[in-house]
Design a binder for these strands. Sequence first.
DNA 1: CGACTCAGTGGACAGGTGTTTACTGAGTGA
DNA 2: TCACTCAGTAAACACCTGTCCACTGAGTCG
Lengths: 221, 221
Amino acid sequence: MNHRHPAPPDRLSRPEQKARTRQALLDAALDLMEHRNLSSISLREVTRAVGVTPTAFYHHFPDVDSLGVALVDECLGSLRATIRTVRDGLNSSDEVINRSIGILARQVHDHREHFRFIARERHGGVPAVRAAIAEQLDLFAAELATDLAGDKLLGGPRFDRWIAADMRMVTSLFVNHMVWTAAALLDAPPDSTDAEARVIDAAGRQLRLIMLGARQWTTAD
Amino acid sequence: MNHRHPAPPDRLSRPEQKARTRQALLDAALDLMEHRNLSSISLREVTRAVGVTPTAFYHHFPDVDSLGVALVDECLGSLRATIRTVRDGLNSSDEVINRSIGILARQVHDHREHFRFIARERHGGVPAVRAAIAEQLDLFAAELATDLAGDKLLGGPRFDRWIAADMRMVTSLFVNHMVWTAAALLDAPPDSTDAEARVIDAAGRQLRLIMLGARQWTTAD
DNA sequence: CGACTCAGTGGACAGGTGTTTACTGAGTGA
DNA sequence: TCACTCAGTAAACACCTGTCCACTGAGTCG
């Protein structure tokens, strides 16, 4: 038997238990935000849903806004990671478009709450949360810029020749389109594959049209 | 002197007074939403700001959400009217682009609260308000579609030949871009003409790129 | 073992909330 | 003139909120 006891078999260690409660608070908040707003859910509701005392909340977050910031990192961080793992193997630009939208649609389908939260709070919420979202979206745009500049899209625009300012304007166009597409997918009824397909089709056309414009773009200030 | 008294000179008639209070409630709500959210302002706050009893509120709106719906009509209705009055006299497509963005920028500059409200509540808020916003934006897209199809843009895409589905996808692209541009203008500090100019410049480039793509677009399903 | 840490408890606090009820009194139309 | 309408009042209602306080007791470390 162990004469030291750093990790008893069934009972959880203290930091483990704390992390678990913290995660439970995050999950509960996301749940409560299905039909509502970060600023319209109360600290007490969240703790009630988890099954702890209101006071216990303060051991994890100074206030509800900070919990919101943590949620932003959880939601967009995971999406960014997912996208990073599948960014390679680019071929024709149409293929890239279809693939990207497919990934986005799957993510929205699997993590509705995450995207709903981001769409809700992007312009809607507390300054701190908005800033956190803006920061993550800027990271998206920056990563997209390096990917586009580095890789060769067969039959697509020669992004490697673009000046920085134009690069930023086109990546922000893509990122905004992504966020808008996610929001449109959320507005579609969750079970109707038909409505979802329509949104995906329209989004694909829009991206193809933008790509067409980018190919023609002469990069002069 | 008047022997009938339909409108006494200094005192206001009853419906006038009622309309005035109603408008005061709308204005006060918009004011309170400068840093906050429709669902996080309270009925009592609004009435307090106007200087009437909480109970008086119910003579104008059944609840705060309905006030929100009324605000949507006020904000987007006025913008739609403004745009309608200046939609004529189109020339080259670049000119149209610059003109449209100019109008938008001026409107945002003059009615910050209106656009802030729309951006906040578009995906953020109560279902009724979101629906009202979506309806108004669809109206925008429809009007834009008829304008584009009817007029001849010199050097621009021949929109009059497009099929309906593609027309919808491109107008929704424009409307979304408009909303996003408004939001970006709001995020810029209100006094800095420099930041504002950068946003306007980027938005113009994006629209020109989209127009370039539209010109190339072959309308096949 | 024994001292210490700290996640979570339970109760109380002052203050704000939406909505109800009965009322007042100026504006109004016959 | 006179009865009626109805925007706004005043007080009370039960309820929920964030935060403070002193506390408990299991996990942890020397």
